[in-house]
Design a protein around this nucleic acid. Structure first.
Length: 575
DNA sequence: GCCGTTTTCGGCCCGACTGTTTTCAGTCG
């Protein structure tokens, strides 16, 4: 049983416990275990096999460790099966609907024996829900609206999709009379790879006209909430947007609060409590003997952090992955920025599936101020992309030579994104590999191999002495394709030993390696590069998404090879 | 259910809104 499966089962246990009204802290313990398991890169199976104490993991105590062992050894969890005998699994789906939590889902099930979304919809349409004690006509309507919403937009928005909706809205809102500040908070500000909805925060001398202007935005599809200081709308794109107007005195506190993450905020508050303080979205308060709190800070985010002895923490780090401890110790990393990059190491041209010629890509890279760049078209087995065989690759080298002579302002390296074949061998002859400046390798096929085979396949490819970079290592497509089953921990360790760099692919559909994996790669001493995998000149600008993901991993410019000047880069990328 | 050199027991983050209520539970962020 692999880690995602174990995490899913723990999550399911937490869901059922919630429906049963179990102790909230016990439920939280299971959710914490989910988080720990999800962020692990070593298979728990290995921990069990090697007898490593599972209780070393945060949030894993005696009971959770027993659960993990049972799942690894038997492929199931008896405790979960017992729970599911009492509560049908379909109730969990009901709980996922907006405005329907564990208590109400249970109530509906008890009263009407409804356990699925379809049945719920039928009952609501028949007016049966309004008759259940504790429900009314309004709740019935909301349930129907929630079901429609749920069906239309189950998955989250990719960052660029959200940006396309949010940027014009921000421009529109900035025209509001009396608006003093406006910022996006939430996972969008933390630059998470996907966002569920958008939280906007503003200061305005007169909140009401700002609210009215917001609700009157032409792209608004429907208004869910219309208050004087808070409104919620759904845009035509299906993206839900919240706008809150807060007083200037608590803007910083509100920004911290609504930026999250939840886990970050929880730890921040706990730290405040230890110091006799209380942090809410209204500010930082010192507890008084009479129970009243004295307001002591809240105007700026930095003020809030300062009250608990912390430096301001960049939003990308706010996930409770050690950033609070780092801030307390004065060891926050100086995060990498887009302008630190001196070269793009992965892109395609018309020689395979790119849209632009080599010359156009070179001109575009030079225009972005890069010192060096890498042309890396596909290899022959990826025939749908027009991948190159040895003969065409030589022709391409000839063209690269010609383009080089016309563009002395930038160094053009010849590379190839060579397919890793099913058996771990490479899709190009050794003498051709030797003629390349850099060899990039990727998985594009047989992505469903069982874990051990996939791991062995990748390890074999990395052993090849000509290989320099392992591209989009997990091959995931966000919201569309799961990562391959592979022992990433082992692969990264071996890559570090061999001196093979791992890629952070900046395509917003991939962002592979992702934040937690990158962090691990750095800890294991892996070389890391960030590149775009551009298939047209405009996609060279995707670099910023990669950089944002790297920032979430806590990477500095010093952690990324292609921030180096060419000569040092060239030495560093050799194995 | 987890956690801890101030604790192995008693903690575990905070506030508002909504709809349904005659005083509040449930849900959300």
């Amino acid at each position: 049983m692999d880690n995602p499966e174990i995490a899913r089962i723990f999550d399911e246990v937490a869901d059922v416990l919630e429906i049963q009204g179990a102790n909230t802290f016990r439920i939280r313990a299971y959710r914490n275990a989910v988080r720990t398991v999800e962020s692990l890169t070593t298979p728990l199976r290995k921990w069990v096999e090697e007898n490593r104490p599972l209780t070393d993991l945060p949030g894993i105590g005696k009971e959770m460790a027993n659960h993990v062992r049972e799942m690894v050894e038997t492929g199931t969890l008896g405790f979960r099966d017992e729970l599911l005998a009492e509560v049908p699994r379909s109730l969990i789906e009901l709980m996922r609907l907006p405005n329907l939590g564990p208590k109400k889902a249970k109530k509906i099930y008890d009263e009407l024996k409804i356990g699925s979304v379809d049945e719920l919809e039928a009952a609501a349409k028949a007016g049966l829900i309004a008759a259940v004690p504790g429900f009314g006509a309004k709740s019935q309507e909301k349930i129907l609206a929630g079901i429609a919403e749920y069906r239309q937009h189950g998955s989250r928005f990719l960052l660029p999709q959200a940006e396309r909706a949010v940027e014009p809205l921000l421009g529109y809102l900035r025209e509001s009379p009396g608006l003093e500040r406006l910022e996006v908070a939430g996972s969008y500000r933390r630059r998470k790879e996907t966002v569920g909805d958008i939280d906007l925060l503003a200061i305005a001398s007169q909140p009401v006209p700002v609210m009215e202007r917001f609700r009157g935005y032409p792209q608004v599809d429907k208004v869910l909430n219309a208050g004087d200081t808070k409104s919620t709308v759904v845009l035509g794109s299906g993206l839900q947007v919240d706008l809150r107007v807060v007083p200037a005195d608590c803007y910083g506190a509100a920004l911290v609060y609504f930026t999250g993450s939840k886990e970050h905020n929880v730890k921040l508050r706990r730290r405040a409590v230890e110091k006799g303080l209380r942090i809410s979205e209204y500010g930082v308060f010192r507890e008084q003997p009479d129970g009243e709190g004295e307001w002591i800070a809240g105007r700026e985010e930095a003020d809030v952090y300062a009250t608990v002895g912390l430096a301001w923490i960049p939003p990308e780090l706010r996930e409770d992955r050690g950033e609070i401890e780092a801030a307390a110790a004065g060891r926050l990393p100086d995060l990498i920025r887009v302008q630190d990059l001196r070269g793009d190491l992965h892109m395609h041209s018309t020689w395979s599936d790119g849209r632009n010629s080599i010359e156009e890509m070179v001109t575009a890279c030079a225009a972005r101020g890069y010192e060096y760049m890498v042309i890396s078209d596909h290899s022959k087995s990826l025939s749908m992309t027009g991948g190159l065989d040895a003969y065409r690759l030589r022709l391409q080298w000839h063209e690269i030579d010609q383009v080089r002579s016309r563009h002395p302002e930038i160094r053009v390296l010849r590379a190839m994104e060579v397919d890793i074949l099913g058996d771990g061998s490479l899709d190009l002859e050794d003498e051709m590999l030797a003629g390349l400046d850099l060899v990039l390798v990727s998985l594009h096929s047989r992505l469903d191999l069982p874990g051990e085979q996939q791991t062995a396949r990748v390890l074999k490819a990395l052993e090849h002495p000509e290989v320099n970079v392992f591209c989009h290592p997990t091959a995931r497509l966000i919201n569309r394709r799961k990562p391959v089953d592979m022992d990433l921990d082992l692969v990264l360790r071996r890559a570090a030993e061999l001196g093979v760099a791992v890629e952070l692919n900046s395509s917003p559909n991939r962002l592979d390696l992702k934040d937690t994996h990158l962090k691990l790669a750095r800890e294991l001493g892996c070389k890391v590069v960030i590149d775009t995998d551009a298939h047209r000149t405009a996609e060279l600008d995707l670099m910023r998404y990669g950089v944002e993901q790297a920032r979430r991993a806590g990477l500095t410019a010093g952690d990324v090879l292609n921030t180096l000047p060419f000569e040092t880069f060239w030495k560093a990328i050799q194995r």
